[in-house]
Design a protein around this nucleic acid. Structure first.
Lengths: 149, 149
DNA sequence: CTAGTTGCAAATGCTTTGCACAGGA
DNA sequence: TCCTGTGCAAAGCATTTGCAACTAG
């Protein structure tokens, strides 16, 4: 089973295309495939994994440069977010659910998502107290998961 | 003025050397210089900046590979910690003061440190609730500082 | 039609590694 | 002395970029 999103893929894709054309930007088949892979993937993926999975799953040849360019495009539109994984890996995920943070197992690299309203509020306070206009934040907890202990 | 630490540099270095020799590891002049630069630096530094500053300040030639190797060494001993800065930069800082998190200005790249006990406690809870053995965490808030607004 | 996108391959930039030599313990 | 650390240069690896061909709008 893949993650449960409130929107099914076709609706999501349709909305995305509408959004893109409103901004007078261009879409492409390649971007559609990337979104599809991200949507149906349970995990956070690297650019290489995305490329490989598209080739495997849909039998479509796609260059990794295209994936990197698309990730930039999606990040600017806030559709995708990027997470620093272990060992300098960059992991991408679709931004469909609410903001969440991550718990990463340093042994098996499993990632668990969590949300904490107290932490979210505290961040707003901290930014305010330092006269910062809050843009974004990253909170990652590293530890060893139950299975690996 | 540099950061105020509870320990002066000579005491810190003496303790470090004692610690290293207890573990039957070797120290070197290069490592001394690296620690000195980190101790007296106000900012978080990249490997390149450390190399450059040692050459500039102490007129000592040091290879960047040595700096990277030393950072690994220090990180294993928990003497130095590494922070992901903007644009994929890795910033190093001495681990002398208490644990703290960072507020980074996306415009001028200024870094402000903060500590928040509520967040620290929450993290412990989150790890516990997910049956993780907590090892470490990273919390970084991105925003625009007062000067840049 | 035409600007933006693609795939490829080459370039980039940061980090690591192999090796001969130097220097701590 | 002996073993580890150092500096250099080369290798490695993820990401970006230049370019010619292609394609969405």
């Amino acid at each position: 089973m893949h993650k449960k999103y409130e929107m099914n893929f076709d609706t999501f894709l349709k909305n995305f295309k509408k959004h893109v054309s409103k901004l007078k930007l261009k879409n492409s088949i390649q971007k559609d495939y990337i979104l599809k892979i991200l949507y149906f993937s349970q995990q956070h993926l690297t650019a290489e994994e995305i490329t490989y999975k598209i080739r495997e799953t849909y039998n479509v040849d796609i260059g990794i440069a295209t994936v990197y360019r698309a990730m930039k495009f999606f990040e600017e539109l806030k559709i995708v977010s990027c997470l620093d994984g272990l060992e300098n890996s960059k992991l991408y995920e679709l931004n469909l659910s609410l903001h969440h943070d991550h718990l990463i197992c340093t042994s098996c690299h499993k990632i668990i998502e969590f949300t904490d309203n107290v932490i979210e509020e505290k961040q707003i306070n901290i930014a305010k107290n330092n006269n910062f206009i809050l843009k974004d934040h990253v909170m990652t907890i590293y530890g060893i998961c139950e299975d690996c202990q």
